[in-house]
Amino acid sequence: MTETDVAAAVQRLLAEAPEVADQAVEVRAEPGMVVLTGEVESEQRRAAIVALVRDGFPELVVTARIGVVCCDPPADPEVLS
């Protein structure tokens, strides 16, 4: 499997696995490893994504650069007109 095919397989797995259903995490495959980048809504979702890819591709090193999106109130409003 080429790195391109690995990236496609991981991308589809993330979207189609019911326990994750994520289409927004970026997947980059390199020889022997896959890098996941993005932000999700909870720490549980981050852990589920990493576990899913590690279980599905045990031959790969999985590097997760996934954060949890901030839910603080906004700063000043943007004045548009």
Binding site: A24, D72, E78, V79, L80
Partner: peptide, 12 residues
């Protein structure tokens, strides 16, 4: 949400 990085944005 990941773009605005806050609970919401406000436009006046």
């Amino acid at each position: 949400h990941p773009v605005i990085g806050r609970a919401y944005r406000v436009y006046q």
